[in-house]
Design a protein around this nucleic acid. Structure first.
Lengths: 179, 179
DNA sequence: TCGGCGCACGTTACAACATATCATTTGGAA
DNA sequence: TTCCAAATGATATGTTGTAACGTGCGCCGA
């Protein structure tokens, strides 16, 4: 896989405009979050996906549900295994990747680049550049939304002539529990 | 490979303390850089590696030289291929990984997480949290040093109870040339 | 009603990235 | 010289990610 993989390439129906401008992001800085969990989260995810003009299928529901049970970034293969169990029938990683790509494009999930793995977005429908904190010891991931900070990163990149900017901000370290 | 891979595991001789505290990093904010290139860069790299108590071998020199020719993040396999050519003898990826890990630990190179690839550090010996900008179209990487920004990221992570923090700050987008 | 189309998903194969384990070489210190 | 540690080699295997093509199903217009 080439280094430019992140350029999202989906079929026509999946081609969703991810180019949130700084101004747009800034607008969202003040809103408050519903940090969903469990059934509430699944419901919010369904709503967001349907809003985006996509279908909420059994397979997608199962994959989202499994993904949402993790508090660590989950690899596509982890998910494939669990979904296979859940369904009593092998689900190939390939299928999982397809759906994860869709989830990332529609903001239902995030890819954690430093872990080659995925996390459910606990507030789908809200657009943020998240900052992820991943513990090197226990793997647990938490996230921070700090729009001031992330907008500074965007601004720095735009100042260097970059456009259609998507920040990847992750912090590796030891969490409070493992410290 | 598990998600906590980033926890550097090297043999005794390679075990180098990477836990730069915020205060230490802050101290460096004012210094000015020599942005090395070519032979000058290789020389600076050699000096930095020897400073760290490591040997500057033929193999390491070759790998560094090849890595430094790239203006895009280079995968270990890319490097293995070119070094193999250069030496007229196959060099296995695993040897390259070993040396890249050493380079990363000693600050001669950086891993670009969102590309699963590596870049030579153009100012070895200077400790920074770099911000990388990687073009989704042409793959070219540039870097920004903005200690104010990166220290804010560190501070945010430390505020969340994280210790031994290592920020991963990368920005994907379209560079000025490809825009 | 039937044919064609689009979308979701399945199946298989393979490419790319990374590590584990043990063997061999080399150079310096006892 | 003998021994040891560090560096590298060789081989195998594990993990992550794509490509290419096939199947099933619902919808819609002729």
């Amino acid at each position: 896989m080439p280094f430019w993989r992140l350029a999202t390439t989906l079929t026509t129906a999946h081609r969703i405009d991810l180019r949130f401008g700084t101004a747009y992001i800034a607008e969202m800085a003040a809103h408050h979050h519903h940090e969903h969990e469990g059934a509430s989260l699944a419901h919010a995810a369904q709503a967001a996906l349907v809003d985006a003009g996509e279908q909420w299928t059994e397979m997608r529901a199962d994959i989202f549900e499994v993904l949402a049970t993790f508090d660590k970034p989950a690899s596509a293969y982890d998910i494939a295994d669990l979904v296979s169990q859940k369904r009593g029938k092998r689900v190939a990683p390939n299928s999982v990747y397809r759906i994860l790509d869709l989830f990332v494009a529609t903001n239902l999930a995030r890819r954690v680049e430093s872990a080659n793995a995925y996390l459910a977005n606990s507030h789908p429908g809200c657009l943020h550049d998240c900052i992820f904190l991943i513990c090197d010891n226990c793997g647990t991931a938490t996230h921070i939304d700090d729009d001031k900070l992330t907008n500074n990163v965007r601004a720095a990149a735009e100042g260097a002539g970059f456009a259609q900017v998507r920040p990847v901000i992750e912090v590796r370290g030891k969490c409070a529990d493992c410290d």
